[in-house]
Simulated assay, not measured.
Amino acid sequence: FCGTACRQAYGRRKRALAERKKDESAEQTVSQLVRQEEDYRKRADAIRKRSLDAQKKTGRAKGIIRLSCMFQLKTILERDPELIENAPSDGYVAGLMDDIDRQGRPGDAERLLRHNGYTGPIPR
């Protein structure tokens, strides 16, 4: 260096360059983090949407299954009520009633039978 002033000027330029590099690096890091956050947000939104859609479809499927089981039980009641009266606890009719109660509210199957005039014993 030609003198103290040149050495100090060089030191200031060197420190300023290092600060600029730090700032640029920090800006790049922030930019990258913002892009990642946007990407994660899009992914999370897509997963949330798929999850809600799956819940809706599951709810509709449960409703359809419940109605199908109720229709089967009502048909059995109309065609051959003795199948209900003599139903074993591990048989088809009891399983059908369990499915109705599981897909809806407990007691739905019994309410269906009673509503349609059945007065006999309820399979458990």
Rank of each mutant, 00 (worst) to 15 (best):
S89R: 03
P81A: 01
E24K: 13
T58R: 05
Q28W: 08
A5Y: 09
T119F: 05
G91D: 03
R66M: 05
C69R: 02
P106E: 10
A54L: 07
I47R: 12
D98W: 02
S51P: 00
D99A: 14
A18G: 05
R20S: 04
K22D: 15
Y10H: 01
D98V: 05
R12D: 13
I100D: 03
L33P: 10
L112W: 04
P121L: 12
Q103V: 04
N86S: 05
Q72R: 05
R7L: 06
E82Q: 09
R41N: 12
T75S: 08
L77M: 07
R66W: 00
D53F: 02
K56L: 09
K49C: 12
E82C: 02
R41D: 13
E27K: 15
K42W: 14
D99K: 10
A54H: 00
R60G: 01
A16Q: 15
Q103W: 04
G95A: 05
A46S: 14
L83S: 10
L33V: 14
E19L: 13
T58P: 00
F1G: 15
E38M: 10
E37K: 12
D39P: 00
G3Q: 05
T4H: 12
R20T: 07
E24R: 14
K74Y: 12
K42V: 12
C6L: 11
R111L: 09
E38K: 12
Q8M: 07
P123A: 08
E37Q: 14
Y40N: 13
D90W: 04
Q103G: 02
P123I: 01
A61I: 07
A109S: 09
A109I: 03
M97S: 06
R13A: 15
T29H: 12
D108Q: 05
L52E: 13
R13H: 11
R105Y: 13
L112F: 08
R114M: 01
Y10F: 08
R114G: 01
D80T: 13
P121Y: 11
Q32T: 13
G59A: 01
G59E: 11
A94N: 06
R35F: 10
A44E: 14
Q72S: 08
Q72T: 08
G63F: 06
R41K: 13
A16V: 12
D90H: 09
Y10T: 00
R12S: 04
Q55T: 09
